[in-house]
């Protein structure tokens, strides 16, 4: 027991360490780049700051200079940045005049809801579709479906969202076109849950359409490779029932490889969720991001960048830990 658990403990530490390192690089990037890119208010020199002063309301400008302290040397600014982050103080939004953390936190849950729901559903669909294609699909069906999946996966997610909104919400009128619930409705009202679900169907469906193709193609390829392994062929010679071969010999052995590559797809699903929200005016982080970008609300943009980074790294880590938990022998291979 002791010997079995030790390597995975070391592995756990490397996973944690690597992800922490990535997070710190992102934090440094978040500090450095706005100051390097020409045109951003943080790269302004002293006389340009006056222009910003004229652009913003007095109170916002004071908060901005208080928070970023642009007159100090870079090292001191960096220390201040880290101090603020450690305290959970992400500055004040220009546009809303509120603390960035509060605004972002009030929006996170809807984005999580959209992306996690679509991730779970699309994994179920994609893995079964991919397995079916590899094991039972006839040649024509396989080619046809693969072409369809290819076409679907090349369409950028926000265009897919616009097309779906055009067709299903406006042309056919089956679903509400925007928002997370009818205007003026509160969670206390009767029938809120039903309205909420109806509003979520279309965005989630678009996300599923966008996530299924890469995962299905990946599953198909992995399963097809494992299907030709000698131990599977041997199992056929022994006359083991086909269902058992599929489940225990092929599918269970395909999971580690699928799982290892799935996290990348999911990270892209997060970005997708942000864009789909914008098209459907779904009040999550995506719409917040659009407002922030349009209003050039730099503190808010930085806050959204941080939250997205943390979310991405958390998902990445979750997947790495999950694959270690399920397949301890992976730790010995690399």
């Amino acid at each position: 027991m002791f010997f079995r658990s030790r390597p995975s403990l070391i592995w756990l530490c490397t996973v944690l360490g690597r992800n922490c390192m990535l997070l710190s690089i992102l934090v440094i990037l978040g500090f450095l780049l706005p100051r390097l890119i020409p045109g951003s208010p943080l790269s302004f020199s002293a006389d340009q700051i006056d222009v910003l002063n004229a652009m913003l309301p007095e109170e916002t400008f004071n908060r901005f200079t208080d928070y970023y302290a642009p007159e100090q040397p870079l090292i001191k600014q960096f220390a201040g940045y880290l101090r603020h982050l450690a305290r959970g103080d992400w500055g004040y939004s220009f546009h809303y005049g509120l603390a960035v953390r509060e605004i972002v936190m009030s929006r996170v849950s809807l984005t999580l809801f959209l992306s996690l729901t679509s991730i779970v559903i699309s994994t179920l669909i994609a893995v079964s579709l991919g397995t079916y294609l590899a094991l039972k699909g006839s040649e024509y069906l396989e080619k046809g479906l693969l072409t369809l999946l290819l076409v679907l996966q090349t369409i950028p997610v926000f265009l897919l969202a616009i097309l779906c909104r055009m067709l299903f919400a406006h042309h056919l009128g089956w679903f509400p076109a925007f928002g997370a619930y009818p205007l003026g409705m509160t969670p206390a009202d009767a029938g809120f849950a039903l309205h909420f679900l109806r509003h979520a169907i279309l965005p989630i469906a678009v996300l599923i359409l966008n996530t299924v193709p890469p995962v299905a193609v990946l599953t198909r390829n992995v399963v097809q490779k494992i299907k030709r392994e000698p131990y599977v062929e041997a199992a056929y010679y022994f006359g083991i029932r086909e269902k058992i071969i599929w489940l225990y010999y092929i599918l269970l052995n395909s999971f580690p490889e699928i799982l290892g590559r799935l996290n990348i797809t999911f990270l892209y699903a997060i970005a997708g969720a942000l864009f789909v929200e914008i098209i459907f005016s779904y009040p999550g982080m995506g719409t917040l991001m659009k407002v922030a970008v349009e209003a050039r609300d730099y503190p808010l943009i930085q806050g959204i960048f941080l939250v997205t980074s943390i979310y991405s790294i958390a998902i990445n880590m979750l997947f790495e830990l999950l694959s270690i938990k399920l397949y301890p022998r992976l730790t010995k291979m690399t």
């Binding site: 780049l33 890119i37 730099y298 943009i301 960048f305 990445n316």
Partner: peptide, 26 residues
């Protein structure tokens, strides 16, 4: 390689978008 790994974990488009927003409008 460790720099490229960051871009696997945080989708490119998010990074591009946020920094393009900071850049000038040209």
């Amino acid at each position: 390689m460790s720099v490229t790994e960051i871009f696997i974990i945080v989708p490119e488009i998010i990074v591009i978008m946020l920094f393009a927003a900071f850049a000038g409008p040209r």
